[in-house]
Amino acid sequence: MTLPAIRISGVTKRYGALQALGGVDLEIEQGEFFGLLGPNGAGKTTLISALAGLVRPDGGTLEVMGHDVVSDYRNARRRLGVVPQELVFDPFFSVREMLRIQSGYFGIRGNDDWIDEILANLDLTAKAHQNMRALSGGMKRRVLVAQALVHRPPVIVLDEPTAGVDVELRQGLWQFIRKLNRDGHTIVLTTHYLEEAETLCGRIAMLKGGRVVALDSTANLLQRFATHTLSVRVERPEIAASLGGVNGEAGWMEFAFESYHEVEPLLARLRETGAGLIEMRLGEPDLERVFVEVMHSA
């Protein structure tokens, strides 16, 4: 059994009266692509900050590749790359200067080959000599990603890396992050774009009020929580309603069901009762549904 990339046990953090983290336990294996989801204020950034040593937890321990982030912080931080949520930059330097300086902070000199590779992958090569101040928001975000990678950390944590980023870059970014994952980097991602998390992450933890309220593989979460839906547009909606349909968007009636066996009898009832089917469509379970259900029941 190899070491977990990240091991978090019993982590608590309080800000005054607010319990930002209420005892979080989490273990992430090496090589995983892991999603950390939750509504605003759930504690995702606080948890990441504790992992990065930016925040001292009140209780509990955190390890990166087996190194405690407090007592063995040097080894822990060398193995961790964090893309912060806030769009921060240093206006004194150009992109390349910034990346060289960041390499230096991690104890590395002569890193230009790797820096060039990162720049190329993030489509920043043309901007390498520009001052940070002169970059657009999305470009600054890319530089933040680049900065987190300069020391080629085995564990990479991205706190909402696609906020404010255009479609093209999002695609490019995910391609790059996937490549890093294939090369052996462990990826932890927070995002509010749930389709993103659904397609990218193998496993997902959902946080609410500083606690983990769901933790499973993406496939299991989709199966366990979400139901399929059959949406219909009918001439007489009141009949559909009497059969258990609920009002959906724009005049559609929705029926929830667990397995496809239930679809045929349902359509038969609609025909028998003369509801007058005009249009229908099937809804696959998606992470957004799961998320809503988990947050409601938690």
């Binding site: 990065a52 040593g53 930016l54 931080r77 964090v82 300086i101 960041q102 902070y105 991690f106 900065q147």
Partner: peptide, 8 residues
């Protein structure tokens, strides 16, 4: 954060 994240 750029100086707080590294192992300084």
């Amino acid at each position: 954060v750029f100086v707080l994240l590294p192992p300084l």
